[in-house]
């Protein structure tokens, strides 16, 4: 394996949280406040996943008090504690930028229908 990949592999997470654009997730991100570490949750819809390898990031959007807030997290960041999927979505696009222009009921994404195993 080439040198760069080996170096990156040392910091990459072996197991990544599985989620896709459109999913509603709760992100647990560590923040340092006055010398104390705590976990700050951020809940919203995944707009996109971007990049590959150690540079992969994802963007989560939520609307609080009428104001849209988007945060981008590096997926391999040691400060990213975990991603909990609250709701899976069925989307036609990989990048859900159209949600920015919509509000209320229009800004929803279709929920993924559960697949039932026969028998």
């Amino acid at each position: 394996m080439d040198v760069i990949k080996v170096l990156e592999a040392q910091q990459m997470k072996a197991e990544l949280p599985k989620f896709n654009p459109g999913d509603t997730v709760r992100v647990a991100f560590k923040v340092v406040e006055g010398g104390r570490e705590r976990i700050q949750p951020f809940e919203g819809t995944v707009l996109r996943r971007k990049g590959s390898g150690i540079a992969e990031t994802f963007t989560v959007r939520r609307v609080t008090y009428g104001i849209g807030v988007e945060r981008t997290f590096p997926i391999h960041s040691p400060r990213l504690e975990g991603v909990e999927v609250l709701r899976e979505a069925d989307t036609r696009q990989a990048r859900l930028y159209y949600l920015r222009e919509r509000s209320g009921k229009a800004a929803r994404v279709k929920e993924k229908r559960k697949q039932y195993v026969k028998g």
Binding site: V3, I4, L7, E8, Q11, K30, V32, I54, A55, P74, H76, S77, P78, R79
Partner: peptide, 21 residues
């Protein structure tokens, strides 16, 4: 010069790095 990538430092910040053999 081998190439560039990024690494996380102990604070969790991203550092752009160049690898030299």
């Amino acid at each position: 010069k081998v190439g560039m990538t990024q690494l996380f430092d102990e604070r969790g910040h991203i550092v752009p790095v160049t690898i030299i053999h």
